[in-house]
Write a protein that binds this DNA or RNA. Structure first.
Lengths: 68, 68
DNA sequence: CTATAATGCAATATATATATTGCATTTTGT
DNA sequence: ACAAAATGCAATATATATATTGCATTATAG
């Protein structure tokens, strides 16, 4: 499923996908695909994204009820 | 770094690595290596582990200050 | 309305998470 | 002390996250 919370947190910091990608050291596509829910990032990448956006894992990546 | 919180949460539920592995649908080695901090699980796997242990991502996988 | 930036999408290539098997070592129960 | 279970470790194989490039589309600024 799409990760709206991530997108909101990113735009709240006035960052483009490309900006965030550079900060956390991945490609723009990776950020885009994560926001679109098209894949399953690694824990380390999630943590880096959280730090870049001043959030925690639960803030951005925890869904109370998830379907696949 | 080793994930002590994961190990503690697992033994608190009286589960072996193999038990937990079966519940979340991965191999025993995968659980063992995550506990030893020898790799970087996917977000989906982290979420499944959390659910199996009645914890959240922040409970098991968030470290306030991490070094690599 | 037009230029530019931001995002989506597709294809191929690479790195790495995960599976599998087998065995060694440690831990636990009796 | 012994048996059984739990864990660690190593090698090879596979699936998939991620990189890279290029182009199409959508949003934003002038």
């Amino acid at each position: 499923m799409k990760n709206i919370k991530l997108k909101v947190a990113r735009v709240a910091k006035d960052l483009s996908q490309d900006d965030l990608a550079k900060i956390v050291g991945v490609s723009r596509q990776t950020i885009g695909l994560i926001e679109q829910g098209k894949y399953n990032p690694s824990l380390n990448l999630c943590v880096e994204i959280c730090k870049a956006l001043s959030k925690t894992l639960d803030d951005l990546f925890w869904e109370e009820d998830e379907e696949e």
